[in-house]
C-alpha cells in the first residue's frame, strides 16, 4: 500500500530528549514514507509518547533533528545556524500533523460539530459554512453523523475518540499520530475506533500509531518499530517483528503481551460464563 517516493514524510535523526536529567530518548532515528503505517511498540516508559510529542513539537527536543514533509520542525536553518521558531510559526507547522490522544481531549464546552469546525475556521480561516459541510462528511466517515450537536460528555469513549479523529482530519493533515487511542476504552468499544483507523490507513493516510493492539499491528502496519529504554531495538514488517522477533527484549515484551492478552481473554470469558450462569439461574427463582 505504501507508495515509494524519494523523500520520507517523516525524517528523524538522532533525536534525544531528557526530563530533568533523565534521558528518555537516546538517539532515535526514524523514517516514515508517505502512505506508510508504522506501529510503535514498547514497554511502559520506553519513550513512545515522548517521541510522538517531539514530532509535532509538543516537546522540544534536546538533540537531533526532525523533518516533516521537508520542514525542519521547530527551527529555521539560516546559513548553517539554527534559529528557534516563534510559537506562532511552530503552531503553523503543526497544522499538517493530526494527533489523537489516549484521553481524547475533546473540547468539553463545544458540541461535536463545533469541535470539528473550530480549527479549520480559526486557524485556516475557512468559512463556517464550508467547514460545517466538511465536518458532516467527516462525521459520516467515522460513523458519527447522528450526533453533531451532542456535547462530548454525552458520548461513550469510543464515540469521543472517533470524533477526535474527525477533528484532526478536518485540518487535512499529511500525517496522523495516534497515542494509544484505544487504551482508555472499554473492550467492547475498541473495535469501532480501530475500524476507523483501518479505513484511514486503507485510504492512504500516513500514520504513526502507538498501540498495544497486536491484531491491528499485524493486519494494518507496514512496519513495526519496537522501542525500549529510549532506543529503537528492532524494526521491520509485522510478520518479522511480531511473529519472529530477533531481539531478546522484543521477545520478552511480546510474550508478556501475549500472556496479558490471554489473561484478559480468560477474565472476559469468566465474566461472560458467570453472567450466563446467573441468567440460567434466574428463571429457577420464580
Amino acid at each position: 500500500m505504501s507508495t515509494t517516493t524519494d523523500l520520507p514524510l517523516v525524517h528523524a535523526v538522532n533525536v534525544t530528549k531528557s526530563f530533568h536529567g533523565n534521558e528518555v530518548l537516546k538517539g532515535i532515528d526514524m523514517d516514515v514514507r508517505k502512505g506508510e503505517v508504522v506501529v510503535l511498540l514498547g514497554p511502559s516508559g520506553s519513550g513512545k509518547t515522548t517521541f510522538l510529542r517531539c514530532i509535532n513539537q509538543l516537546e522540544t527536543i534536546d538533540g537531533g533533528l526532525i523533518w516533516v514533509d521537508g520542514d525542519l520542525m521547530g527551527y529555521e536553518d539560516r546559513g548553517g545556524t539554527l534559529h528557534r521558531l516563534t510559537d506562532k510559526r511552530i503552531a503553523a507547522q503543526r497544522r499538517d500533523i493530526g494527533m489523537c490522544f489516549q484521553r481524547f481531549n475533546l473540547f468539553p464546552h463545544k458540541t461535536v460539530l463545533e469541535n470539528i469546525v473550530e480549527a479549520p475556521v480559526q486557524v485556516k480561516g475557512m468559512s463556517r459554512k464550508e467547514a460545517e459541510v466538511r465536518a458532516r462528511d467527516l462525521l459520516e466517515q467515522v460513523g458519527m453523523s447522528d450526533k453533531p450537536s451532542a456535547y462530548p460528555s454525552q458520548l461513550s469513549g469510543g464515540q469521543q475518540q472517533r470524533v477526535a479523529i474527525a477533528r484532526a482530519l478536518a485540518m487535512d493533515p499529511k500525517l496522523m499520530l495516534f497515542d494509544e487511542p484505544t487504551s482508555a476504552l472499554d473492550p467492547e468499544l475498541v473495535g469501532e475506533v480501530l475500524k476507523v483507523m483501518r479505513d484511514l490507513a486503507q485510504g492512504g493516510m500516513t500514520m504513526i500509531v502507538v498501540t498495544h493492539e497486536m491484531g491491528f499491528a499485524r493486519e494494518v502496519a507496514d512496519r513495526v518499530v519496537f522501542m525500549d529504554g529510549g532506543v529503537v531495538v528492532e524494526e521491520g514488517p509485522p510478520s518479522q517483528v511480531i511473529t519472529a522477533p530477533q531481539h531478546g527484549r522484543t521477545r520478552a515484551f511480546l510474550s508478556r503481551m501475549r500472556q496479558e492478552e490471554q489473561a484478559h481473554a480468560r477474565a472476559v470469558a469468566e465474566v461472560v460464563s458467570a453472567e450466563s450462569a446467573a441468567l440460567d439461574d434466574a428463571p429457577a427463582e420464580e
Binding site: L58, D87, A91, R94, G98, M99, F101, F107, V123, A168
Partner: peptide
Amino acid sequence: DQGQTEAAQALGMSPGR
C-alpha cells in the same frame, strides 16, 4: 486540563487563540 491546551496546539492553534 493541560490536555485541552495540547489538543488545541496539536490542531495548529497559536498560544493566544
